[in-house]
Design a protein around this nucleic acid. Structure first.
Lengths: 90, 90, 90, 90
DNA sequence: CACTGGAAAATGCCGC
DNA sequence: GCGGCATTTTCCAGTG
């Protein structure tokens, strides 16, 4: 029923697998903590901007636009090719 | 413990709430079925296009681009205002 | 055997392909509109349920459960329990 | 009292605001990059677990469970069970 | 048939 | 406190 890593196998394979599982989970949890810390930092920046009289929503939009624009040039260059492909002119 | 709609309340309120709950769920299920039907129709269209020699991925991309462009003009017209707002020039 | 819709042919094959492409795209767009309408209907149902005091998160869960096949649900649960045991989680 | 960062003031207040705006945006962008790095690390951990034969979906579920407060988990479960009972679902 | 990428759903956040 | 929105996570089809 289980082709996983021998958690229910005989011997001490079970223990090994359990330890491994625990290790994976703890690594994930550690990383998620770090991620949350950074997310909080971002919130602080926005709060600070707001405290300086900036309109937060607009700043968020600008950040988003700049992110889009980054990937967009490459995409726009690809559009001509895209149309050709769509028309079967590959 | 529960400020929901009297499912555990005395009298026949329980029955009423259960019927109501069932009704909501069935409405959702019915709608999800319809939605799935349409999703399948969309897949069929793509399959047909593919059968006609078109490059499906490109068509998907074009559909997406057209959708973006729709909302985008309004947005671009709003950007100047946005920058002003971001600079506190509201 | 057919690498694209009539590109190689002379005459207005390209125009034909473009028209066909447009037709496919429009069919998809029409269907996606319908799909969105239904998605909105579903949201409305949940909103109405909420307005009647129900806990929508639980309703969503029930809808999902009812959709799942009993067998796969059991199997999934078995694995989770197995891992829990490995971690010493009651 | 201060509706925006020094717009009303004479001189180069506008430039100051623009610089400040740029600074906020760059701080956010820097942090979002870091956040993405960590998110990628998390994906890697799951990939590695998978490579070791683990069922990642179950691991994700465990991580979520461990994060949840026991009390709210119980409450949520209680409501789901209540609704199940109302629907006659074993 | 496992993997990647993209759509759909769910969660959480922000502003009102 | 709630509704709407954006992000995140989950799921699934398509692909090699």
């Amino acid at each position: 029923m289980n082709d996983g890593p021998d958690i229910e196998g005989g011997g001490n394979a079970k223990t090994v697998a359990a330890n491994q599982l625990r290790a994976f989970i703890e690594r994930v949890e550690r990383l998620e903590e770090e991620k949350k810390t950074i997310a909080d930092d971002i919130k602080e920046v926005y709060a600070e901007a707001k405290g300086n009289g900036f309109y937060t929503k607009a700043i968020r939009e600008l950040v988003k636009l700049r992110k889009q624009d980054a990937g967009e040039r490459a995409e726009h260059e690809a559009i001509v090719e895209l149309y050709k492909a769509a028309l079967g002119m590959a």
